[in-house]
Every structure is written in C-alpha cells, then in structure tokens.
Design a protein around this nucleic acid. Structure first.
Lengths: 376, 376
DNA sequence: GGAGATTCTGACAGCGTAGACATGACTGCG
DNA sequence: CGCAGTCATGTCTACGCTGTCAGAATCTCC
C-alpha cells in the first residue's frame, strides 16, 4: 500500500536558492533546469537534479504563476451531477489534460443558482486559470461575464459565441438523427420523442436532430413529452406518451429515461420491442444488459474532450493563430434488442417487409453486437 | 444565454494598487477590504469596493498564495472513470467544497500507471494545495510519498494511516452486511457474492461485510466470483456463479454487475426474484427502473464527502487540534423487486410462504417504498 | 588568429499580495 | 488633563520564481 509520510515540520520547504547553493550554481540556473530550457550543460543539469532530489525540492507553483503570468491551469465549469454524460465528459477532459502540463480546476454550477455559469466562471477567474472549458452548458438566461482568457464551450450553439470563445459540437444532433433514422428505417410510420430538459443545449440538439430526421423523411411530427433525464421521469412522462396506442417507436433523449420508459411500457403490458421500439442515447454502461438490451447511440466523449482541449490550448499558446473549427465527431449507433420492425397492424398494407427484415440487425457499428443478448 | 465578453487586450488586469489609487487609500487597505479584515471604516470599505468594481478588479490568486503561503485549494485524487460511485463522490466533494473558500484541483490516476496514486499526489503537491483528498483508493503496492499537507483518505483501511493522514470509512462494510442480512432474513440458506475487483478497498470492504454477515449467522460461505464493476463482467462472471443450481441469493458488489447478473439469469431461464434473489450496491439512477427493479443499498456520498472535507479543513486550519474520527455513515437499504424468499424446494419445511407473498410482487418503483426499506 | 556566432551562466528586477510593524486619531477614565 | 487602550490606516518588505540583459566561455570558419 502507498505509504504517505510526513516530511516533518522541522525542515522547511527548500526553494530553488537552496538547491542552487547545494549544486554550486545560481538560482537562475536551477530555474533553467526545471523548465527544460536550452543552454544548460549536461554536467550542471545533473548536479542540479541531484541536489534537488536530495533536498526534496519542488517548484512553488504560486511563485511561478506570479512571475510568469501564466497559471498553467485550466478551469472547467461542470454540472454538479453524476449523470453519465457530464461525468464522462469531465473525465474525458481530465484524461486529455494529463500530460499537457496543465492542471485542472473544477467548479460546478449550482442548480437553481441564478449566478450559474457566470458565477462559476467568475470564481475560476479569481482562482486564476489560463483558459476555461464550459462543459454541457445550460441556458440560464442572459448573463454577461467579462473574461480575459480563452473560453471553450462544449456543445453550445453558435449563439454563445463572442470574442475569444470557441465552441465545439458534441454531435448530439447528428446522433439523434441517426437514432431516429434507425427507427424509420425499420419501418415505423413515425417516431415519438421523450425529450430532455430544454434548458440543456444537448437536449435541444437531440430534439432538433429528431425533428430533422422526421422532416427529411416527410413524416408526421408528434407532440413530445419532456423529462428531466432521470429514469423516474422516463417512467412518468413515458407513461403519458404511451397512453396513445398508436405509438410504435420512441427515441428517448438519454438511456436513463429510455429505461424508465421501458419499465412503463412493460407495466402497461406492452412488449419491447415487439409492440414498441425504444432507442436511448449515451450508451451508459448498463445499457447492454438491461432487459431488453437497449439500442442507443454512443457519444464520443473522449474525442470531443480531446479535440476541444487541443483547440483551447492552441488559443492559449498561440493567440495570433486562426482557430480551426472542430470537426464533427463520429456517429456511433449501437443496435441491440430494444428496437424492431413495427407490429404488423401498425403498418397497413405496405410492401416493406423484405426491406425491413433486411434492415433489422444491419445497423450495427463495430462495437455493436449480434443477437439480443450482448456481452462485449 | 450567457454572453462572454472579452475584456480587451488594451486594458491590463488592474491590481490592488490601481484600486487603491482610485479609492484614495493605500494598497494594504484594499487588501484588508477584500480579506474582510476588521478595522476598516465603512466609508473606506465602500469606496474601495466601488473602485474595484469600476476597474473590474480581481485578486491575483498566485500572488496571494505566494505571500500567504496558503493556496486555498485542496487537491482531489480521483479515479479516471465515470463509474457512478467515484463520480458521485467527486461531485459530493465539489458540493461540499463550495462555499468553504477552497478551490478544487482534480487529478486522476491512470489505470495501469505504476506511479498511480503517489504520482497523482506528487503532481498535486507541485501544483500547490493545502490538503489532499484521496477518493476511492486502489491498492497499488508499496509506494511512499513525502507529503507536507494533511491528507484525507476516503474509504481506506486503517493500514493506510500515517502522520497527518486521516481516514474515513465510507461504510461499505456495513452496507454490504445489511444487504446480505436482508437476503438471509428472507430465508435464504446462504448468499453468494459477486465481488468487485479486489485492488479496490471498497470492493474488499464489501466482501468483508458479506463475510461478516454470513459468519454472524453461522452460514456456509460459498466461493466468490470477481468482476470488474461492469455489467458485462456481471454477466460473464455471474454466468459462472449461477451454473450452480443451488444458488438462490446473490449479493453483487455494485448495481452494474447486479444488472449484468440478472441478464445472465434471465438468459439461463432463471426467474428473478422467484428463483434467485439479487441485491446490488450503489442505487444507481436506473436501478429503480430496470426489470425487475433492483434491491440495493445506497451509499451516502454527500454525507461522506461533507464529513471528510470538514475533517480535512479542520486539519488544515487548526493543525494543533486533535482530530475526531468520523462517525459511521447511515445504512440505507432500498428494497425493490429483485429479492424475495427462496423458492420452496430450497427451504425445506419452513412455514414462510406468507412472508414471501407479502414481499414478492410488490414492484414498487419509488426509491422509498414501504416494507422493509429504510428511507432516510 | 581573430571576428562573429553560439553556448552557457549569473545579476538583478519585478510579479501582486499579505504580514509585521509603525503611526495617528479617537475614546474612556481616573 | 494625560495616559492607556482601541480603532483605522499607511509603510515597507518578503514570498519564490521567471524574464531580461549582460558577460564569459567556447566554437566556427575563412
């Protein structure tokens, strides 16, 4: 087990001057060694490192930040939830940040706090950051924050833009479209939508993607119901939705709500996928193993985080450069057992059975699976 | 939507001296105002705040840290995963930290990195933190880190202790025991265990709690199988476990594995809970809505995070004080529909049918249902 | 062999704040 | 009235590092 040892109050933290004295060089040279600056002879470098090691020297970050004007840390505004999406994105950012030499400062917005995002940004600026990532933003009405570092907004619409602000799509709309198209291709007349809370941009994106898919196929756009991302809301709102017996296909804005919806369907005596097909969104870890295993789309959190961070670091380090906009992340549909062709009576006299049959099970991505039960 | 506005490169960041000049006071007085020090007249305070507001002044954290020797931030070593447990704990810490005046610096350990926790601690110390929280630690073999700030280890065994190190139980063992006892009380002869990866202390705690419960009731302790927390491993390892037809009750070390296990049971033609009862651990958001709704225990993440943080801040701010050890968090068992009395043939000649009927088939979905569950 | 370029090292001056200490102004009280 | 005590503010400086510049040592090449 890791042992954690007190360094003892007797010895104060050594500073670079102490190392310099021990190594017989100037304090500035120690600084050079630790910053990997050129023009330090191999011999001196070795002596400095040895002395530093012997004293247990560590650079003082505060002093570095003060002297250089750069804090070497970036702030992340996250949502104070353990929801799979936000949490995954945060972890993706953490992973991407590692090895860049930048540390992460995380604050999260308080639900119901009117200051919200702007308050969080404010507090990050006070802490001192070289850049800010706003992950999974929520629309909280017009607020203005004065910022002097680059800001990256993950998954916000263009309307968020302003000087120094970068935006990156997380591809929610495309994924939502793919999910809806999958159901349409199976032969469903139309697809209903169990939407996420509309203050969330990602929920709006998914709604939009669903609409686009329906419009592109010239289908009727039914009324939506809106949940709060939770399985409980999926159950409650889903129950309302499926009160309509003509519903044969539902696209839920996340997997949790999809699972709640399936629960509601089963409680109502409807079979999934025989009577109603359900598609989720996120591919949360349990989706492959709930009953029935859930067809869903997978968000490329790591790719989004990595690309976004790269963009931000470039804005920090090469302020003069033009910034390329990020490319669209890949669409990954995971077909499992919660979707199927509509029940016969719901597709009156259409010669589509062959096409439908072909279509079923053909939508799998590399990660998807064979039959209804799918270990990965 | 929040507008983010560049402050413009023309104007440099104002410093306290600028505010002081505008307010007609000394720089030190500005410092006093912003630190809420006593002995500043109301009039001066107002003038300073006005001037600061006018200039858009923000304190420079690096300078503050350098001058005061305190960074006002605490570091969190987290696991680089979006698993519900670790993510929830991290959010709990974030929530608890808010309002304390301490910022959070997060680093996560890389899976497979030999440096692991010690490397993460090292990097936090370099960034400069006043204290460190190690959340959900993993045993990575003997490593020694030299530390000069208080360290709080959430959910590590006593063996982790060392000077300046605090430990807090997350109560996994008690919760595991409650889960196991619940199954025993339903009349099962014994309870099998689908364990988590044993490098995780929390997985060990759960194993231990299960053992304790069995021993306390004088039951036979069956062989365990071990998963990796994922639903997929729950399916795969669970399949091995239930190859034994005498299994009537399984305690899984987390909900994901429990869900995978139920999937495996259903694929094997065993009914849940009629043939086999399953208890999970965590109460992840979908647990109330998977089929059947999962009986599980809920971890008091917020309580643990809050109490732990309080402990740590006390160690930071009153180093002389004796530190009280944290109290045991509450045990919260959530009984849903995945558990019932064992099938008749498994409980030879016991007059328990009435109890079974009562318990079974009550597919209540709300998290705090009646009966044996314990609402908080 | 010496002008110029290149490599290495050091002296010095901040960076923006908080702490130690000094200094008045004012208060209360014998 | 004078002295101690409290309150309000200012002066000066250290915090530990990096950026700038200067100087010394070494190399390069005709």
């Amino acid at each position: 087990m890791a042992r954690i040892v007190d360094r003892g109050t007797s010895t104060a933290m050594p500073r670079s001057a102490d190392v310099a004295r021990l190594a017989g060089v100037s304090q500035k040279t120690v600084s050079r060694v630790f910053n990997d600056e050129p023009y330090v002879s191999a011999d001196v470098r070795r002596r400095v490192l040895e002395a530093a090691d012997q004293l247990g020297y560590r650079r003082n970050n505060a002093a570095r930040a003060l002297a250089s004007g750069r804090t070497r840390s970036i702030g992340v505004v996250s949502l104070g939830t353990a929801l799979y999406g936000p949490a995954s994105l945060l972890m993706g950012i953490e992973r991407a940040a590692r090895g860049t030499g930048y540390a992460l400062r995380v604050v999260s917005t308080v639900e119901g706090d009117p200051a919200g995002i702007s308050g969080a940004v404010q507090s990050l600026l006070e802490q001192g950051v070289d850049g800010i990532i706003i992950s999974e933003p929520i629309d909280q009405g017009p607020v203005t924050v004065r910022v002097d570092v680059p800001v990256l907004v993950l998954g916000a619409p263009a309307s968020f833009s302003a000087p120094l602000v970068l935006t990156t799509s997380v591809g929610s709309d495309l994924l939502a479209r793919a999910a809806t198209d999958h159901l349409l291709n199976l032969g469903h007349q139309t697809v209903h939508h169990l939407a996420g809370p509309q203050q969330w941009y990602s929920a709006r994106d998914r709604l939009q993607g669903w609409r686009t898919a329906l419009a592109a196929s010239g289908r009727f756009e039914p009324e939506i119901v809106t949940g709060d991302w939770s399985a409980a809301s999926g159950y409650a709102e889903g129950s309302k939705l499926i009160a309509d017996p003509t519903v044969t296909a539902v696209f839920a804005a996340n997997d949790d709500m999809a699972i709640g919806l399936i629960h509601a369907l089963v409680d109502a005596g409807r079979r999934v996928p025989d009577d109603v097909s359900v598609v989720g969104f996120d591919d949360i870890p349990v989706s492959a193993h709930v009953l029935p295993p859930l067809t869903t789309v997978r968000q490329p959190f790591d790719a989004v985080a990595e690309e976004g961070l790269k963009l931000l670091l470039r804005a920090i380090e090469e302020p003069q450069d033009d910034l390329p906009s990020a490319s669209d992340p890949p669409v990954e549909l995971v077909v499992r057992a919660s979707t199927a062709c509509p029940p016969p009576r719901m597709t009156p006299g259409q010669g589509k059975r062959a096409a439908t049959a072909t279509n079923r099970g053909s939508h799998r991505s590399a990660t998807s699976d064979g039959g209804p039960s799918i270990p990965h």
